[in-house]
C-alpha cells in the first residue's frame, strides 16, 4: 500500500487530476470506483465524475480543459492480486478490449486523451466478489476508504486554493 500511496500522491500533487469512477454498483465490488467518486464528488464537483455522468461527454469535456492534465480512472480490476489490493496502471497497459455494444473502451478514451497531451491512469482494486445485488466486500471496502483518505486532503486543498 505504501508504494501505491506514494505513486498516487505523486500523481495527484504533480498534475491537475480529474478522477472518473467506473463500474456497476449492482455487482458488489465492481461498484468500488463509483463509491470512491461518490464520496469525493462534493469536495470537487468539477474534478470528480461518475461513469453515470456520461463517460463519453466527460472525456470530451476534459479534452478541451486546460486545467485537466491527468485523468485517473478508478475501477475494480481483476489482475490476479489479493482481494482489496490496489495497483495503478499506465495508459500503455490498459487492456486492448474492443468497443462493446454498451460502452467505448477505456483504451480508446485514453488514446484520445494522449493525443491531446493528457496522461491517463487506471487505479485498479482487486475485487473479491462480483455477485449480483451484493454489498462491497470488507477487503475492498477497506481499500475504498484508504483511497478516499488519500484523495480527501488534496481535493479539500484544491477547492480552497
Amino acid at each position: 500500500m505504501t508504494n501505491v500511496k506514494k505513486r498516487l500522491k505523486g500523481l495527484i500533487d504533480s498534475k491537475s487530476v480529474v478522477v472518473i469512477g467506473l463500474g456497476n454498483p449492482d455487482r458488489a465490488d465492481d461498484g468500488v470506483g463509483i463509491e470512491v467518486a461518490k464520496k469525493l464528488k462534493e469536495l470537487a464537483p468539477d474534478r470528480i465524475f461518475l461513469e453515470q455522468d456520461g463517460l463519453e461527454g466527460v472525456v470530451l469535456d476534459i479534452l478541451n480543459r486546460k486545467d485537466a492534465e491527468t485523468v485517473l480512472f478508478i475501477d475494480a480490476v481483476d489482475f490476479g492480486g489479493r482481494a482489496g489490493e490496489i495497483q495503478i496502471f499506465s495508459q500503455a497497459t490498459f487492456s486492448p478490449c474492443s468497443i462493446s455494444t454498451h460502452k467505448v473502451s477505456l483504451q480508446l478514451l485514453s488514446t484520445l486523451l494522449k493525443k491531446e497531451g493528457k496522461a491517463s491512469y487506471l487505479l485498479g482494486i482487486q475485487p473479491s466478489t462480483l455477485d449480483f445485488d451484493s454489498k462491497i466486500s470488507d477487503e475492498v471496502k477497506k481499500s475504498l476508504e484508504k483511497v478516499v483518505e488519500i484523495f480527501t486532503p488534496f481535493f479539500n486543498h484544491s477547492e480552497r486554493g
Binding site: 463519453e56 461527454g57 468497443i99 483504451q107 480508446l108 484520445l112
Partner: peptide, 20 residues
C-alpha cells in the same frame, strides 16, 4: 476505431459526442 485516432480524431470525437 482506436487506430483511427491519429488521423481521424475528429470523427472519433464526433462519434463519442453523438453516442453520449
Amino acid at each position: 476505431a482506436m487506430d483511427m485516432v491519429d488521423n481521424y480524431g475528429e470523427e472519433v470525437k464526433r462519434g463519442l459526442a453523438m453516442k453520449g
